[in-house]
């Protein structure tokens, strides 16, 4: 039985070793060396890690990333639940809504960037023109508040539909009997949400939180296109930070940042998962 299982897993393992394991090991290998083009890499142990940890530009990028990821969860998850609750349960309206919600998810990242560039760029965009009417001088490329705010709103725009779809699927799978029972038990709308809807959505919400958290770390092409990571480094999130280092061939440094990145995401994801798995299960009433 054991052997058969591994036989079935073989194709997957071969491809994953090519596209995941070998590259990851290469990155780990980088992180342990000083690498300069034209000379042999030199083994330096954890020196790169120490350098990264001491580097204030890394600390800032990580801090910026954590704030961004937290805001993503705080805004997108509740918003997603609310929209999912408002969607029609069945019929043509439901079908149309689902198709519309799916569209932003299917736009290539680069096109998402183009859409928002056209939308917000100071000479051709609609946003600066409209805000100017209210006397606000909006500039996504130059204003250190407008830039991160726009990137964040872009992310909300782009990814909240995914949260909605997940929550909608979760809502659909709650049997009517649970709502009927709550009605019979005289529960208010809020109590029905709190004790029926929310607990039943738990598996889906775990998924939504984890997916959004992991993927929020990957934000890269949007700031690249919209703000170029600036002004200053106000929109240089972790992926963009690490890519810049890799592009300038600081491979050892970039490798160390990547390993730290992965460690942070896996650790936080695991913590979220553990917390949410047991949250509010059979709370004691006395």
């Amino acid at each position: 039985m054991n052997n058969r299982a591994w036989l079935f897993l073989l194709p997957m393992l071969i491809i994953m070793s090519l596209s995941a394991f070998i590259p990851l090991m290469t990155v780990v290998n980088y992180s342990l060396h000083y690498i300069f083009s034209g000379s042999m890499p030199q083994y330096v142990g954890l020196a790169n890690y120490l350098e990264v940890m001491r580097d204030s530009s890394f600390q800032n990028a990580l801090g910026r990333q954590l704030i961004f990821s937290t805001m993503v969860l705080v805004v997108q998850i509740p918003l997603g639940i609310m929209i999912a609750l408002a969607l029609p349960k069945k019929g043509t309206g439901a079908t149309i809504s689902l198709v519309l919600l799916g569209i932003p998810l299917l736009i290539p990242y680069i096109v998402v960037g183009i859409v928002w560039r056209l939308f917000t760029q100071s000479d051709i965009g609609v946003v600066p023109k409209v805000l100017a009417l209210f006397g606000y001088a909006y500039n996504v490329a130059l204003d250190p508040i407008d830039a991160p705010l726009t990137i964040f709103l872009l992310d909300v725009w782009h990814w909240t539909p995914l949260v909605v779809l997940l929550c909608y699927a979760g809502l659909q799978s709650i049997p009517d009997a649970f709502y009927q029972a709550a009605q019979i038990d005289g529960a208010s709308t809020w109590k029905t949400f709190r004790y029926v809807t929310l607990p039943k959505l738990r598996p889906v919400l775990i998924l939504a939180v984890l997916l959004r958290f992991m993927d929020s770390f990957k934000i890269y092409s949007e700031p690249l296109l919209l703000t170029g990571g600036g002004p200053g480094s106000s929109t240089t999130y972790l992926s963009l930070f690490v890519a810049r280092k890799a592009e300038s061939y600081e491979l050892g440094y970039a490798g160390a940042v990547s390993v730290i990145y992965l460690f942070v995401v896996v650790t936080f994801s695991f913590i979220f998962f553990q917390i949410m798995k047991n949250l509010g299960k059979g709370e004691h009433s006395r």
Partner: peptide, 8 residues
């Protein structure tokens, strides 16, 4: 109600 104990 999964999120409560039997008493609740």
């Amino acid at each position: 109600y999964d999120s409560m104990d039997v008493y609740g």
